[in-house]
Write a protein that binds this DNA or RNA. Structure first.
Length: 617
DNA sequence: GAAATAATCG
């Protein structure tokens, strides 16, 4: 009996439905029971009853059912049309909102103030500025351009569709600004990439609610200002406001990117302590955080407790395994995912293919790539081709990799050539490197990394003239290297080290510590490999030498300030250089410490003088 | 008679 007592049903037969009754329906079958009883009571043709039923069905996203009821009604009123416009505004088919709007007008109905917020939302969802402008025209024609709800949705529409000028024009004209107006404008600035203006407005707001905070914090996170996101979260807490799940998603995601395990654990603790619901989105964010912070066991632990795992949460964990080079685990979870009845998505394949690549499972990777097309009917995209080039390249099958690039059905982009160039670096192949490097420099003349990579390969193969040519080319074009940095978290504080850093308050002790480390690893056989540093285009070339790489400073600091046998975790924004890699291996041996380094691409677990990447990265 | 606009996972 679907949870309804006979008493309730008898009551229903006697009179019109009360909203609360319908609201208590949780499934389609509940609704159908009520519906059947309404018909039996001869009330379904009452437009009011139908309105309630339709509106509730739409609330529960039962659009098809709502449509069924709709076709049983003779003269639908504007409330019903509004319900459909609302229902489709956030769906995959936002055009249908327009369809119902047009139909309502054709039936001689007059739109009201509740029609437009959703019609405008449909345009936002649809991504069509033209439609948005049409809707705006209708709004003016019907005299709703002073309704604050309508104005707020217009602000969102214009800013989402890239017209921040119109958005702020409308915002300035709102006579009774409310929290939503301000919040929408802040969100608008963030969408346009102008986080500074967003924050200025945020600070000026007369009142804020959790959505406002959430918009600003996620805005920082989306634009890669993860430390700012965390800072703002602390500010929120200091104001005594309790965060909610949405806010925590951005906080957790920021910890993930910063590799800040302690902070992430604290945030997780806060979530549990405050009895928040770890829904699928928050749960997936947690899985990602633990994986990216090098705590893969905890990632699995959270994953196992997720309510109703979807393809994305599985993929997140699989990508986590890939990052750590645990190819077998990634494949195991891939087949478990399928057994659980979930269809892998494009991005799932990106994760498993990169797992094969990092784990050196070449044949398995090739098989999967074929099966992706054959069995899953997924057309490989650029990212997948990138994984394949990486896979073949790492395995030393450079000629095949190059052939792969040249025979791709679409134009290879920079990351693809970059993967080929990276493989040439590992295998010291200057011939293919030259072709890849030249194409890359044409493709992305402003991107310093490719010049550097090509130059390093020339240096390694003793082609010094070419090294000089590239240096010259960069100078002429004014290309500069982005600053490399390394993060190290201690006691919930994230320390940032940059190359040749002089700004850290304890820099003198850190340098002394580094000298001590250097002495010890030299005894263990470290000679210092200068290949990667030979081409350094910084102005202060002599100072920012290889011994001042941010990574080494961070490690020195970590060894100085931590004791015991906990692993040292650090996060880099660039790839680990050859010399740092060698040095770190020796440090792990000499100091008997495990070092877990996350670089731009993957994790390196250094232990007892070896690295989990098997010197392949 | 009933209904709203702003935000979160790779």
């Amino acid at each position: 009996m679907c949870g309804f007592s006979n008493l309730v049903l008898r009551k229903l037969e006697l009179k019109n439905p009360k909203l609360s009754l319908l609201e208590s329906c949780t499934t389609l079958s509940h609704l159908k029971i009520i519906h059947a009883h309404l018909i039996r009571a001869h009330t379904i043709f009452d437009v009011f009853a139908a309105s309630c039923l339709i509106s509730i069905s739409i609330d529960k996203n039962l659009l098809d059912y709502a449509a069924q009821v709709f076709y049983q009604i003779q003269n639908p009123n504007i409330f019903i049309y509004n319900s459909f416009i609302r229902g489709f505004s956030g769906s995959k088919d936002p055009d249908k909102s327009f369809h119902f709007y047009v139909q309502s007008k054709r039936n001689g109905l007059v739109p009201d103030n509740l029609t437009y917020p959703f019609l405008v939302k449909a345009c936002t969802q649809n991504g069509s500025l033209d439609m948005g402008i049409q809707a705006h025209g209708q709004i003016i024609r019907h005299g709703f351009d002073n309704d604050v709800y309508v104005q707020n949705s217009l602000v969102t529409m214009y800013s989402t569709l890239g017209d921040i000028k119109s958005a702020s024009y409308i915002f300035r004209r709102i006579s009774c600004l409310d929290v939503v107006s301000w919040t929408s404008m802040v969100a608008g600035y963030i969408k346009s990439g102008d986080v500074t203006s967003a924050r200025k407005l945020f600070d000026k707001m007369p009142e804020k609610n959790l959505v406002t905070w959430s918009v600003m914090i996620s805005g920082y996170a989306k634009n890669s200002f993860f430390d700012k996101a965390i800072e703002l979260y602390f500010l929120l807490q200091s104001e005594g406001v309790q965060a909610n799940e949405t806010v925590m998603v951005s906080v957790i995601a920021s910890c993930a990117h910063l590799g800040a395990l302690e902070l992430g654990e604290r945030a997780h603790d806060y979530i549990l302590r405050n009895k928040m619901t770890v829904n699928l989105i928050l749960g997936t964010a947690l899985v990602d955080m633990y994986a990216r912070c090098g705590s893969i066991d905890k990632a699995i632990w959270v994953f196992d407790q997720l309510p109703g795992r979807d393809a994305l949460s599985w993929t997140t964990l699989i990508a986590g395994f890939a990052m750590h080079g645990y190819a077998k685990k990634a494949l195991e979870y891939f087949s478990r995912m399928e057994k659980a009845g979930l269809t892998p998505r494009e991005i799932t394949f990106t994760a498993v293919l990169s797992a094969c690549s990092h784990g050196g499972l070449v044949e398995r990777g090739l098989e999967l790539f074929e099966s992706m097309k054959r069995d899953y009917r997924i057309e490989p995209r650029l990212e997948h081709y990138g994984c394949m080039v990486d896979l073949l390249g790492r395995a030393g099958r450079l000629a095949e990799a190059e052939k792969f690039v040249n025979e791709m059905p679409m134009k290879p982009n920079a990351p693809i050539w970059g993967a080929l160039l990276g493989a040439c670096r590992i295998h010291k192949n200057s011939e293919i490197a030259e072709r890849a490097g030249k194409t890359l420099i044409e493709l992305k003349p402003e991107h310093s990394g490719y010049y550097v990579l090509l130059s390093n390969i020339y240096a390694r193969t003793n082609k010094w003239e070419n090294v000089e040519n590239i240096r010259q080319m960069m100078k002429e074009r004014g290309v500069v290297k982005p600053p490399g940095y390394t993060l190290f978290e201690m006691d919930g504080k994230v320390h940032k080290f940059t190359i040749g850093d002089k700004t850290h308050p304890e820099i003198q002790q850190i340098e002394r510590m580094w000298e001590e480390i250097l002495g010890k690893i030299r005894l263990a056989g470290y000679t210092g490999n200068n290949d990667d540093a030979l081409f350094d285009i910084d102005e202060e070339e002599k100072e920012s030498n290889i011994h001042r790489h941010s990574e080494k400073l961070a490690i020195a600091y970590a060894i100085m300030r931590t004791k015991g046998h906990d692993p040292i975790r650090i996060v880099k924004n660039l790839r680990v250089c050859e010399d740092c890699h060698t040095a770190t291996k020796l440090i792990s041996k000499v100091y008997e410490r495990e070092l877990i380094v996350r670089d731009r691409n993957r994790f390196h677990h250094f232990k007892g003088g070896a690295c989990s990447c098997m010197d392949y990265w």
